[in-house]
Computed example of a mutant assay.
Amino acid sequence: MANTLPLAMLIELAQNKTDDATRRLGQLQRAQIGAAEKLALLIQYRQEYVDRLQAKMQEGVPSSHWRNFQNFIGTLDGAIEQQRAVVAQAEARLNHGRSDWQHSKRRLNSFDTLADRVRQQAALALGKREQRDSDEHAARQFQLRAQALTR
């Protein structure tokens, strides 16, 4: 039993670490999804703005509006590129978090496998001990009967 206590502690620690890694992975997934959604919104907004300008250009657009449009599209393009970088960073963090979680899960599974082996060995040892005790008891009973018959 003294050997299983440290193993139980290791399993508990590994379980806690796996739980923490799972929570972090969930947070990283939500952050990545949020960043990707924001990027999609920026791209959609840019496309809608371009579509509106094209519709207005058919009516005629003053040059000042055209310059404002170009400046605004440039600003949107800059924001889109920045958001693409944010998405790439979020994906990298997500991949790292996924790797951490997998490592934690493998470690926990290793400890669980080891604990199963310890339990199997203990059960086997107990079975052998019970069989030995039963054999000894039967041998004593046999000796007692043999002695009783010889008297």
Rank of each mutant, 00 (worst) to 15 (best):
W66H: 14
A146K: 04
F72M: 08
H96S: 06
P6T: 02
V50M: 05
L7W: 06
L25K: 04
T113M: 06
R132S: 14
Q141M: 10
L53T: 08
T75G: 04
A40L: 03
Q120P: 04
W66M: 14
S110K: 09
V86K: 01
A115I: 07
D77W: 02
V118A: 14
I33V: 11
R132N: 06
L39D: 00
A88C: 05
A88F: 04
N71W: 02
G97H: 00
P6Q: 05
V50K: 08
I33F: 03
Q82E: 06
V87F: 00
K105D: 15
R129T: 12
H65V: 15
A55T: 05
Q102D: 09
I11R: 04
I11Q: 11
A146G: 03
E59M: 02
L108A: 04
A40R: 03
A139R: 07
E91P: 00
V118Q: 10
E136N: 09
R151P: 02
G78F: 00
M1A: 15
L41E: 14
N109D: 12
T75D: 12
E12F: 04
A88L: 13
L10R: 13
Q143V: 10
Q27S: 10
I73Q: 02
Q29L: 13
V86M: 05
A122I: 07
R52N: 13
D133V: 14
A139K: 07
G74C: 02
H137E: 08
Q143M: 14
S99M: 13
Q131N: 03
R98S: 11
A14I: 07
L124Q: 06
D77S: 09
A40G: 10
L124W: 08
T18M: 13
L7D: 06
L94H: 01
E130P: 06
L108P: 02
A35I: 01
E81L: 00
L28P: 00
A115P: 06
W66P: 02
T18G: 01
R24I: 15
T75S: 15
A2Y: 12
R129W: 10
Q32L: 09
R84I: 01
E48Q: 15
V86A: 02
T18V: 13
A2W: 10
H137K: 14
S63F: 06
G127V: 05
L124Y: 05
L108C: 01
I73A: 12
E12N: 09
A40T: 08
T4L: 15
Q141C: 13
D116N: 14
L13I: 07
A85N: 05
I11Y: 02
